[in-house]
């Protein structure tokens, strides 16, 4: 009995020593080395791909923002996004999805309301949006709640509203959208997309110039 206790203790001690040595290698040296290389070679990306407008940082090109006025292009809904519930000395963005199933009544309601709003907001005096025109990304929340992109179809749908509210010709705004439409990577990876923050920064510039 005594013998087996000492044996177990000896084995556990060996396990702990192994863990500590490997912690030094994988938990200290490895992340520090990668950080060194990352900061030296890809400084902007390693620090969050910050993006500037008028000389001020206005966010990250990778992180979608909510709360644009209707003068601007609207992002996807983000019903799963939260705020931190612990360590409340900070106001952190809590990424997340809604996790609602296809038959969930709440999700059905959100989608219906979002669709009605997209149709209403984007219909102008001489441009009527039909419900069948609204693409799926415009009425659903993304996985992270931070999706920086919308589909080109959703951007196109917003052109008339944005042009009218900014006093710009629709063709000019459409051109801006086309310039900011990114196709599939190498022609086949992912889906075509428009970065909302970058588009809105360019829109603000354009509106200020004219």
């Amino acid at each position: 009995m005594n013998n087996s206790v000492t044996n177990t203790a000896r084995l556990l001690a060996a396990g702990l020593r192994a863990l500590l040595v490997l912690t030094l290698v994988c938990g200290v040296l490895y992340p520090l080395a990668v950080t060194g290389v990352a900061q030296a070679l890809f400084n902007n990306k390693a620090n969050g791909s910050e993006i500037k407008a008028d000389g001020k940082v206005v966010g990250s090109s990778l992180i979608g923002q909510q709360g644009y006025s209707l003068d601007y292009f609207q992002p996807r809904p983000a019903n799963g996004l939260g705020e931190n519930s612990v360590n409340t000395q900070y106001k952190l963005i809590l990424s997340g999805a809604t996790n609602r199933a296809g038959d969930n009544p709440e999700l059905i309601k959100w989608v219906k309301e979002a669709k009605a709003k997209v149709v209403k907001d984007n219909s102008t005096a001489d441009y009527k949006v039909r419900p069948s025109q609204v693409p799926a990304d415009a009425v659903t929340s993304s996985g992270s709640g931070l999706d920086p992109d919308i589909s080109p179809a959703y951007a196109d749908l917003q052109v008339h509203r944005v042009a009218e509210r900014n006093g710009l010709p629709a063709a000019q705004v459409q051109k801006l959208v086309d310039e900011h439409t990114e196709g599939r990577t190498l022609g086949f990876m992912g889906e075509p997309r428009v970065n909302v923050l970058e588009l809105n920064i360019a829109l603000k510039d354009l509106a200020a110039k004219s």
């Binding site: 809604t98 989608v111 993304s142």
Partner: peptide, 25 residues
């Protein structure tokens, strides 16, 4: 095929999916 009431209204099973990846990836 996106069966399910909410996805049928939305026109695609994009809930919980990122635009840059889409349904395929």
């Amino acid at each position: 095929a996106h069966h399910g009431p909410a996805f049928e209204i939305a026109g695609g099973a994009m809930e919980g999916k990122e635009q840059r990846f889409g349904i395929g990836a």
